[in-house]
């Protein structure tokens, strides 16, 4: 793989294909035990102990209003420089180099930065910053 090439982690939520830049993901793990978060909106599964840090676990499907995470699923822990957040998804599909992206168009959904066209079909690249901003915005709202 040539220098400067980015890699994408492709995962599934409710049969839809999403992607994150691999550099934004610290770890992919089995769903850990979680503890309830008082007053947090229902899309938060709870908080987990991630190597001594508290990381909130988000049911991505629930947040995107496309259902709920399918068990057992996987948890994608975001890089700690970005947030103390992990995304609960249905399964991890693959890791690809962005050389495999044949084309892209701007995302039309709020949390989607781009829709990437790959040999295996379309993938929605999550807009991490927009997702975090929306989570913060709705944090104290009754859900």
């Amino acid at each position: 793989m040539k220098d400067g090439t980015k890699r994408l982690l492709i995962f599934n939520v409710q049969e839809r294909r999403y992607a994150l830049g691999l550099q934004d993901v610290a770890e992919v793990m089995e769903p850990p035990p979680t503890f309830p978060i008082p007053r947090a909106p229902g899309w938060f599964k709870g908080v987990m102990n991630f190597h001594g840090s508290l990381v909130s676990v988000l049911d991505l499907a629930k947040f995107l209003k496309i259902g709920s995470a399918v068990r057992p699923g996987k948890v994608l822990v975001l890089d700690r420089c970005i947030a103390s957040l992990a995304l609960m998804v249905d399964r991890v599909e693959t890791i690809v180099s962005d050389d495999n992206v044949l084309g892209e168009v701007a995302g039309s959904e709020p949390m989607v930065a781009k829709v990437l066209n790959t040999a295996d079909g379309e993938v929605k690249l999550l807009a991490v910053e927009a997702l975090l901003a929306e989570l913060e915005e709705t944090m104290n709202r009754e859900v």
Partner: peptide, 22 residues
């Protein structure tokens, strides 16, 4: 608590107890 939980009102932080409970 970090992002995004730090925005949640009424919580000053978190802690992990000896039995691993957060």
């Amino acid at each position: 608590l970090g992002r995004p939980l730090a925005k949640l009102k009424g919580l000053a932080g978190g802690a992990i107890l000896g039995d691993g409970e957060s």
